[in-house]
């Protein structure tokens, strides 16, 4: 999508786009069911499932006990039956009680049963900080899942992508972790927390076509083309990185990875080979974060094209703090410093 799209196109925020994707799949596929804490009558604490129970009935969209282990475990059994469950984990921070069911069961089922059983579930979960959620409503645990053989991890950064990626995830026969950056549910946050936020309606990527469309898993999105350096980011940090590059007047080649597993390695290689410099940005803690994997891949595959050391900008290796949120958040200052360092080499 580009900024020159005609005005008057339908514009949605990310919540509306996700809700629409869910409604389309519920309509199209009688095997799709949605379950999770508060997702039924109430429509979800972030409203992502608003109106769906009323439209599709209580056995297609329903509330669950507060038991992430039970939610994921039941979804494995439903998948074995032939359903295509789309469980919601209310916050990514709550997903840990369900990890054994995800890691040892859902992720391994096709492999261990030699295709007799599969776990075609899409686990939706809001993740990331910037909403004063403190340590239990702010985490970015994506690297825990990319480390697991058999799980796909998808993170949209725009309403257009959120709808197309979610439909693709639900139709995918592998278990997919679908992390929704909750800071940008309602507006594309740029990291300048003290400045007014522009709503999605003013963003080029809030134009969302009606009906069914898919964005293939494993394909990155070129946010902007440039020559000075490559920026690899996903989720909220795509918008933050873009704003910082714009503010600094840096001609960056920005890739929104969209899917961490499978990863679009071709797009990454092509970009780094072109620019020779690479900045990796994520909100998650630094050590063993997905940036470490990206950094290793770029070093292994693009070493002879690099003109400066790879830089990682990340959250600090601490629990997500409440009052010091903006000191923790990898915002414009940290990103700006890293860009200066890369470009000075």
């Amino acid at each position: 999508m580009s900024a020159s799209e005609p005005k008057g196109e339908r514009r949605l925020n990310m919540i509306e786009a996700i809700n629409e994707a869910l409604a389309i799949k519920l309509e199209q596929d009688p095997d799709v069911i949605i379950m999770g804490e508060d997702v039924g009558y109430f429509g979800g604490v972030f409203r992502a499932t608003a109106g769906l129970q009323e439209k599709f009935g209580k056995t297609r969209v329903f509330d669950t006990p507060i038991s992430e282990c039970g939610i994921i475990g039941a979804a494995v059994g439903m998948g074995a039956y032939g359903l295509r469950p789309v469980p919601e984990i209310q916050f990514a921070d709550y997903i840990y009680p369900g990890l054994d069911q995800l890691i040892s069961e859902a992720a391994r089922l096709r492999y261990r049963s030699a295709r007799e059983y599969i776990a075609p579930m899409t686990v939706r979960s809001p993740f990331g900080g910037g909403i004063f959620g403190g340590q239990t409503h702010s985490q970015s645990p994506e690297a825990l899942f990319t480390h697991v053989a058999g799980l796909k991890t998808v993170i949209p950064a725009t309403p257009y992508d959120a709808k197309g990626l979610l439909i693709a995830a639900i139709e995918d026969n592998d278990p997919v972790i679908f992390f929704e950056p909750k800071r940008i549910y309602n507006a594309p946050f740029t990291g300048y927390y003290d400045k007014p936020v522009e709503p999605w309606k003013k963003h080029r990527d809030s134009i969302v076509p009606e009906g069914h469309y898919k964005i293939p898993l494993g394909k990155a999105r070129q946010v902007q083309s440039g020559e000075a350096l490559t920026v690899l980011a996903y989720g909220t940090m795509v918008h933050v990185a873009e704003a910082v590059c714009q503010a600094k007047g840096v001609d960056a080649d920005i890739l929104d990875l969209r899917t961490l597993m499978p990863l679009d390695i071709d797009a990454i290689e092509a970009s780094v080979e072109k620019t020779g410099r690479c900045l990796i940005v994520h909100e998650a803690t630094r050590t063993s974060g997905f940036g470490a994997e990206l950094s290793a891949l770029v070093m292994e595959r693009c070493f002879y094209h690099l003109e400066a050391p790879i830089e990682r900008v990340t959250g600090f290796d601490t629990p997500y703090p409440h009052s010091l949120e903006w000191a923790y958040f990898p915002g414009p200052v940290r990103i700006g410093e890293a860009i200066d360092k890369i470009l000075s080499e």
Partner: peptide, 28 residues
């Protein structure tokens, strides 16, 4: 594992099959 005999793939991790059975029954 034998789908033909309605016998789910055995895990080595314990008790994981119990919520799965409930989920299957819910689906049914």
């Amino acid at each position: 594992s034998s789908r033909e005999h309605s016998f789910f793939s055995i895990s080595g991790n314990l008790a994981t099959q119990t919520p799965q059975a409930v989920g299957w029954a819910m689906a049914s």
